[in-house]
């Protein structure tokens, strides 16, 4: 079991300021939670470009290759000429390639989402229901007791509505 300190804020600015000052005091392991997406919060924890994009790209390229080879191989396994068309006919096969590109791209993006975000994570975590409604919260993992007092102080100073300690699964 590990301890976690949760500070709950009513206003966005307070929440962001608290996060900034925690960062400044050297606490890097902070989790910012908000009911809506806040780009400033992402910048504070240092998130700019997501690695999901590599998944999408790889998926789409794999899909393009798979789609085209699927069509070609299916045509060659059992050669059945139809309508005077070529066995490997590019125009129709490109349509198949197109669709499979998108299919694989979407599936890879889904995989990427799970991989990058670390979800699904059904373990108990520092979380307060209100943060999904109209509150902002910061969860910090304190290393020692001295740190935890300092964290609590920082959170309170920034205008936290409530500060509490939680026991969560490591």
């Amino acid at each position: 079991m590990a301890k976690s300190i949760l500070g709950i804020f009513q206003y966005e600015e307070d929440f962001l300021n608290a996060a900034k000052s925690l960062k400044a005091s050297g606490f890097n392991d902070i989790t910012l939670m908000s009911p809506i997406r806040l780009e400033e919060a992402e910048e504070i924890v240092g998130l700019y470009k997501s690695n999901v994009r590599y998944f999408s790209l790889t998926g789409a390229i794999t899909g393009a290759i798979t789609g085209f080879s699927l069509a070609v191989v299916c045509a060659l396994v059992f050669i059945l000429p139809t309508g005077g068309r070529a066995i490997i006919a590019f125009p129709p096969f490109l349509v198949i390639t197109y669709e499979v590109t998108i299919l694989f791209g979407v599936l890879a993006t889904l995989l990427g989402f799970h991989f990058v975000s670390g979800l699904p994570a059904w373990r108990d975590k520092a979380y307060k229901v209100d943060t999904n409604i109209d509150r902002f919260s910061i969860a910090v993992d304190p290393g020692s007791d001295t740190d935890s007092t300092k964290i609590e102080q920082t959170l309170r100073d920034a205008g936290a509505e409530e500060v509490k300690q939680l026991e969560v699964a490591a």
């Binding site: 939670m33 997406r37 919060a41 975000s117 979800l119 994570a121 059904w122």
Partner: peptide, 13 residues
């Protein structure tokens, strides 16, 4: 998926 609304989750989503 155990969504908490963390900055990381929002960002990835």
């Amino acid at each position: 998926f155990g969504w908490r609304g963390t900055a990381k989750e929002w960002h990835t989503l």
